[in-house]
Write a protein that binds this DNA or RNA. Structure first.
Length: 257
DNA sequence: GCCACCGGTGGC
DNA sequence: GCCACCGGTGGC
């Protein structure tokens, strides 16, 4: 086992696991486990793996030390979340679907080259397109966003008339699917073909959300404009209130001194 | 400068 | 007390 890289069936093809026994020091005899990506990048911890693999692999049951999936064990592994004291919040460990989904969004990255010491690291394998899971929306089922007081936030309303197809025809899934499609695609979002509706598992078009083909009308656009305007007004009011509160606060502090 | 390696520490 | 995780550094 020592210093030999072995295949790791629980990870995608090409990933290797290595166990290195400590030879000296107080921890002599203990071992460190490392993983190597197909491109040779070394990983020292599960959080590091999760950050890298994002939504492409579900590592919630992955046991970093053994390199195997631990089924049914309710993942009681000692995953630490540094800088997060925890609270009554739902399980925010590595299985966090929100994070995994967020990572599929193609977000712009600013490459700063102005500083002489700067280095830009890149991983070609990671940069290229990753395979996507069919009906991934189901993984988000039952999750709700909440504000700092744990109050569940109201989700967005989709325009009526959208008809979800696939294994989970709930409106939640459709909302996630459509917002994700809008992020990922530069083309129009129009739904699935009629054959996909008959047998989604075979005919689904991954670049479109799993819903019946639809058309966006002038009326839809008008309604959405109103919604956006309303939200902007609310935001403006909140920001104004916040500025006023801060000013009042600093005035009070100055007077107290 | 890189990285293999061990130590330190926080969460359990 | 154990150990997952990651910081730090000596050796190259």
């Amino acid at each position: 086992m020592e210093k030999r890289r072995t295949d790791c069936p629980a990870l995608p093809p090409g990933w290797k696991k290595e166990e290195v026994i400590r030879k000296s020091g107080l921890s002599a005899g203990k071992s460190d486990v490392y993983y190597y990506s197909p491109s040779g990048k070394k990983f020292r911890s599960k959080p590091q793996l999760v950050r890298f693999l994002g939504s492409s692999v579900d590592l919630s049951c992955f046991d970093f030390r053994t390199g195997k999936m631990a089924p049914g064990k309710l993942q009681k592994s000692k995953q630490r979340t540094r800088h997060d004291p925890g609270s009554g919040k739902p399980d925010l460990n590595t299985a966090l679907p929100i994070r995994q989904t967020a990572s599929i969004f193609k977000q712009p990255v600013t490459k700063v080259t102005g500083h002489p010491g700067n280095k830009v690291k890149s991983d070609q394998q990671r940069a290229t397109e990753q395979p996507r899971q069919l009906f991934w929306e189901k993984r988000l089922k039952g999750l709700r966003s909440s504000d700092v007081t744990q109050e569940t936030l109201r989700t967005m309303d989709l325009p009526s008339g959208l008809h979800c197809i696939g294994p989970d025809p709930s409106e939640d899934c459709l909302l996630w699917a459509i917002s994700s499609a809008l992020h990922l695609s530069s083309g129009p979002i129009s739904g699935q073909s009629s054959s996909a509706e008959k047998n989604p598992a075979v005919w689904i078009n991954c670049s479109q959300p799993p819903c019946r083909s639809f058309t966006v009308t002038e009326q839809h656009i008008r309604v959405q404009e109103q919604v956006v305007n309303q939200v902007r007004r609310s935001l403006e009011e909140a920001l104004t209130a916040d500025t006023l509160a801060r000013t009042a606060e600093s005035t009070r502090e100055r007077r107290a001194r």
